[in-house]
Design a protein around this nucleic acid. Structure first.
Lengths: 203, 203
DNA sequence: TATTGGCATTCTGTATGCATAATTGTATAC
DNA sequence: GTATACAATTATGCATACAGAATGCCAATA
């Protein structure tokens, strides 16, 4: 799917809107790094390179650490409850609906960021989480998200004790696991390019 | 200037382009937090609230710390030279052209971020620096930037020694000074609103 | 005099049309 | 059979036109 052409007419027809609308949406997605655009050549679903992927992960770690620093200072019992309910949802979805489980796993981080109360931080986290999803779709092999849920739980537990360092450690460990799963499988950008071409032909 | 209406027709005429172009630019600036947009009411130059301003500064600190961590690991002599040349430029501008001095002070941070090599981080730093400029325009009283230059120099010196902690300390101190200058003058969002209204009437 | 209703104006939101750049396909030459 | 050039098709970039929402103004009425 990454690399696919996004023709304005096609999308517009599909959603019953004019090219103008499609154009603004594509521009927005481009700004968020989810679609690539070339002048006079149009838009494609972004194919982040390996180094771009590393940049996204590094930035994500940096942002999410800050989220936890803030949260450790100011979480309310209400917040903790919301987080706990979310992880419970994740647990439920994990045995039933794989797609939902993946979506919920991302939304946990977005929820954390929004609870931090810093809107700017939250917007950036939202973006990098989306981009990570795209990266995982590109590079990662299918996997269970059992561990994710466990790590999410660890983060909540640390926040409940207002232990920011423990929360950050859990987050670091968590994101490192995700990163490794995504990036250690390929060893170079070139390899990635080849693989994506092969994938295209295979489907 | 913040709060001013940005009418599409007016801007388009001013720059000799159609509303289509203006619209995309405004949308982009909105995404970057530099203009406010309300449905069916158009765009205005953003008037970040005090809490929004604090969020921007906090996020900026977080991002720039990461920039320095990376740079302390990987700066080259070339990089150091470019930074030094930039600060020299700042020093020169400081005595001659106030507007240029302010611009260069912001660009120092953008240069740092781009030298980090992390494009994602660099884009976010670019955004928050722009937003900080807007915030300073809103809240801050005019001031000399002598201290800024000295602090920039400290950061370079720390990087030259690959001492990330010293660089981060200098940056923290630097940004804290800027933040205080901007945010301690006002004490609440309400006060800011009132002041902006008065400013409007005065001009 | 204050308030409300309606009218006119202005500006935004969206669609569409036209010109230009890119791509694809075809024909011809080597 | 391959390569190149040219034509036809397609898609993008931009401008413009039209419809609908918001604002302001004025008059009418309480």
């Amino acid at each position: 799917m990454p690399g696919d052409k996004l023709t304005e007419d096609v999308i517009g027809e599909r959603f019953g809107v004019s090219r103008t609308i499609v154009r603004t949406v594509l521009a927005r997605l481009h700004a968020e790094g989810l679609v690539d655009m070339q002048p006079n050549k149009g838009a494609t679903i972004a194919q982040p390179s390996l180094s771009e992927a590393q940049d996204v992960f590094e930035t994500r770690m940096c942002l999410e650490r800050q989220v936890l620093v803030r949260l450790a200072e100011k979480v309310t019992l209400d917040d903790i409850e919301r987080l706990q309910r979310h992880v419970d949802l994740e647990t439920k979805a994990n045995t039933q609906d794989g797609a939902a489980a993946i979506r919920l796993a991302g939304e946990f981080h977005i929820l954390l960021a929004s609870l931090s109360g810093n809107r700017v931080l939250a917007r950036y986290v939202d973006e990098v989480v989306s981009r990570c999803s795209l990266i995982l779709a590109l590079y990662s092999r299918p996997h269970s998200s059992d561990c994710s849920i466990h790590e999410h739980q660890q983060i909540i537990d640390a926040l409940r004790l207002r232990n920011s360092q423990a929360a950050i450690d859990a987050m670091d460990h968590h994101l490192k696991a995700v990163t490794d799963r995504a990036l250690l499988s390929s060893t170079s950008d070139k390899q990635r390019d080849i693989r994506s071409i092969l994938d295209r032909y295979a489907s």
